[in-house]
């Protein structure tokens, strides 16, 4: 029974390939709004390739086990497809719809071929569903995996991007912090800052927290740790960019920041730092 079913499906696919392809593309264009994101020509190429590979796989493998070697090329194509769609911002269901929308055209053709024999038809439909469902699940899984990879990479990028240490002046460093400070980031920030202090021989570091959305006790503790570590290296720290809201929060939480010089803006902190290093700034008088 299974053997007869398998040959029927692959026969049907071979016989009506062109018609199935047309129906399938029509189905996808109608169902998925993604049509405007992907060109019809491109979609047609992808579908045609998939159908060809499906045909080959169906013919060479009787078990309908999509994880077997006979399906490796089909899996590769689907993998490529879900990765590119994950990057393009498709949802998992939109990606799975690529495979699932093939059901209707296939069922239609199967009915046309063996419509009279209800038992055989039911059997064929079951087999086809099994294969397509497994393939669809496979795409969803891969889609998820590629999305996870993207998120992981972005997290790392953010960690590196968001902790720059810039030299403002001879022996004055600035550390503009953007985003929430957790312990992992504090570690990176601290290491970067101390390393730069050694490299530049800086004696003053300005930590600007304009870009830090909230300061709770934990964040404050992390900040104070960084200040303490910099002090041990012989560099004084100034914390700047404290917004009114944050000043209120700090006081309400009872965080003790009196051991550190704090300034409202980076500009004020810079002036203090310049004074500390013995530099003065003034306007040049025009002759």
């Amino acid at each position: 029974m299974a053997i007869r079913g398998r040959s029927r499906l692959s026969d049907v696919v071979s016989k009506h390939e062109a018609a199935i392809l047309t129906d399938w593309i029509k189905e996808q264009l109608a169902a998925v709004k993604a049509a405007d994101r992907i060109g019809e020509a491109e979609l047609r190429t992808e579908c045609a390739r998939f159908l060809t590979l499906l045909k080959v796989a169906l013919r060479s493998d009787g078990s309908h086990d999509v994880s077997s070697a006979a399906w490796s090329e089909t899996r590769e194509l689907l993998g490529e497809l879900s990765r590119s769609r994950a990057r393009a911002g498709y949802s998992p269901s939109e990606t799975a719809a690529f495979v699932l929308s093939l059901k209707r055209p296939l069922f239609d053709r199967l009915r046309g071929e063996i419509g009279g024999d209800a038992d055989a038809l039911a059997d064929e439909v079951w087999q086809t569903t099994l294969v397509l469902d497994r393939l669809a699940l496979f795409t969803t899984e891969l889609h998820q995996k590629s999305r996870d990879e993207i998120i992981l990479r972005q997290q790392q990028d953010m960690l590196e991007l968001s902790t720059p240490v810039v030299q403002l002046w001879e022996s004055i460093l600035a550390l503009p912090l953007i985003g929430t400070l957790d312990s992992a980031r504090t570690q990176v920030v601290m290491e970067n800052l101390l390393q730069r202090i050694v490299e530049t021989g800086a004696s003053i570091a300005i930590i600007d927290i304009t870009g830090v959305p909230t300061v709770d006790t934990l964040v404050a503790q992390h900040l104070l740790k960084t200040v303490a570590a910099a002090r041990l290296m012989g560099a004084d720290c100034i914390i700047s960019g404290i917004r009114p809201q944050i000043a209120q929060t700090i006081v309400h939480l009872g965080v003790e920041l009196s051991s550190v010089i704090t300034k409202a803006t980076l500009a004020d902190a810079f002036v203090i730092a310049l004074q500390r290093t013995g530099a003065t700034i003034g306007r040049a008088t025009k002759a």
């Binding site: 050694v198 004696s203 740790k225 303490a228 002090r231 041990l232 012989g234 560099a235």
Partner: peptide
């Protein structure tokens, strides 16, 4: 060493420090 001391809670408050 600085990071270790801070993590140990020994910020050496009374000690003056310099880079070199």
């Amino acid at each position: 060493v600085a990071i270790t001391l801070v993590e140990l809670g020994l910020a050496l408050p009374g000690v003056r420090t310099s880079l070199n």
